[in-house]
């Protein structure tokens, strides 16, 4: 199948992720949307790699998956520590830092 279908799908997924980050207010949902954006990039990498016949793209995907896992581990830990202080993870209510 032609490359552009995969790229359009990945661009759609990426856009859904971006809109989610901008619209949703729950920190964990925002985080999930960021993961969606990373996976959209993964899809693009795999499709392009297959199309070009080179392995670099597939290699990239493995690294991205590892990075995303590390990011989730750190991210959830930080979100839990915010929840302990404020009993909320709504990003509009966590706003004591302002100038």
């Amino acid at each position: 199948m032609a490359l552009q279908y995969y790229l359009i799908l990945s661009a759609l997924l990426f856009t859904i992720g971006v809109i989610g980050v901008l619209v949703r207010r729950n920190a964990i949902i925002i985080f999930m949307c960021i993961e969606l954006m990373l996976n959209a990039a993964n899809l693009a990498f795999v499709a392009i790699s297959r199309n070009l016949g080179t392995a670099e793209g597939q290699l990239f995907v493995f690294f991205v998956m590892a990075v995303a896992a590390a990011e989730v581990a750190i991210g959830l830990a930080i979100i839990v520590s915010v929840f302990k202080h404020r009993e909320t993870i709504n990003v509009d209510e966590v706003n004591s830092l302002k100038g």
Partner: peptide, 16 residues
């Protein structure tokens, strides 16, 4: 903690 969360969410967004 709040600084960490803001940095994390925007930083990860930028990384994507």
């Amino acid at each position: 903690s709040e600084a960490g969360m803001k940095y994390l969410l925007l930083g990860a967004f930028a990384s994507a």
